[in-house]
Structure formats: structure tokens, C-alpha cells
């Protein structure tokens, strides 16, 4: 009985971890962040302060956070 409860708890934790890894916030930080910083450099945009990578990660993180909260990257919620 204890073993099955432990296995279930482990499975639930793994599923939670997978949910976090595939979440929009992680995607925004881990992919959109560096991508935005490369676009900033490509377009020769001068950032007011700091490194373009920091700006990219901040903007990517905010976009990911909004996507997480709204359930949509494009603001419009899926029906």
C-alpha cells in the first residue's frame, strides 16, 4: 500500500515537473529570450541600459507569463 502511494506521489511530481518544463514561461525565458536578443542585435537596436540578452529574457519572460496567464500567446483565448 505504502509503495503504491509513493509511486503515485512520484508520478504526480514527475507530471508537475513536465508541466513546468513545457510551460509558456519556460519557453519564453529559455527560447524567446535569446531569440529576441539576437533580433535586437540583428536590427542594430540600441538598448537604453544593460545587455540585449537581459532585455530579451525579460521581454520573453513577460510574454511567456502573459501566455501562461491568458492561455494564449496572441491574447485571444482559445474557445
Amino acid at each position: 500500500m505504502m509503495t503504491s502511494i509513493n509511486l503515485m506521489a512520484i508520478s504526480m511530481n514527475i507530471l508537475k515537473l513536465i508541466g513546468v518544463l513545457f510551460s509558456p514561461v519556460v519557453f519564453g525565458l529559455a527560447f524567446l529570450g535569446p531569440l529576441l536578443s539576437e533580433i535586437i542585435l540583428l536590427l542594430n537596436v540600441t538598448v537604453p541600459v544593460g545587455d540585449p540578452l537581459i532585455w530579451g529574457v525579460v521581454i520573453g519572460g513577460i510574454l511567456g507569463g502573459i501566455a501562461q496567464w491568458r492561455g494564449s500567446w496572441i491574447w485571444v483565448k482559445p474557445v
Binding site: I18, L21, F22, F27, A30, F31, G33, P34, L35, S37, E38, I39, L42
Partner: peptide, 24 residues
């Protein structure tokens, strides 16, 4: 799950090694 993990993991790895545009 494995395919999704490899896909997103590859995107992340490329992005953090300076190849985000190529990955995109």
C-alpha cells in the same frame, strides 16, 4: 513526451549557444 522534450530541449540548447535565429 520524448519527442516534445527533444524538440524543445534542442531549441533551448541552440538558443543558449547563440543559435536562436537558426533554431527559429
Amino acid at each position: 513526451l520524448i519527442f516534445n522534450a527533444v524538440f524543445t530541449g534542442t531549441l533551448f540548447a541552440l538558443a543558449w549557444t547563440g543559435h536562436a535565429l537558426e533554431a527559429a
